[in-house]
């Protein structure tokens, strides 16, 4: 009985825990630059979608600038909401928030 068997017991338990708890997913902090790029992409995307939809509906209904203006306003609102949600994700550091946004990453965009 050279080795202490109780020591072995703890070592076996440790090995078991190591086998189970291995996670490769880490979380990095978002950098300021990364956040800025992310927001820019989000806003540009919002703008692009709303301009496209506005022009398309205007073209279909022949209502010239009406829907373009409406969609621009709505699109900006949606863009801001997406940005806020993305920012919420970043600061909370979790996915649990609603609709949009992404995991917190350095230079996400």
């Amino acid at each position: 009985m050279a080795d202490d068997p109780s020591d072995l017991e703890t070592r076996i338990a440790a090995a078991r825990k190591k086998g189970r708890g291995s996670r490769t997913t880490g979380k990095a902090q978002a950098s300021g630059y990364g956040m800025a790029v992310r927001m820019a992409v989000e806003m540009v995307a919002a703008l692009a979608v709303s301009v496209f939809l506005g022009l398309w509906i205007d073209g279909e209904l022949d209502t010239a600038p009406l829907f373009l203006v409406i969609f621009l306003v709505l699109g900006m609102a949606a863009g801001v909401i997406n940005v806020v949600r993305a920012a919420g994700m970043m600061t909370r550091g979790s996915r649990s928030g609603p609709a949009d946004g992404e995991g917190d990453r350095t230079r996400g965009d």
Partner: peptide, 23 residues
Amino acid sequence: RKHRIEQDLDGAEKARADAEQAR
């Protein structure tokens, strides 16, 4: 591999128990 590790750990656990019993 997970099973194998699990088995090995079980084996180690059993060997330890045996040693304890022998003592």
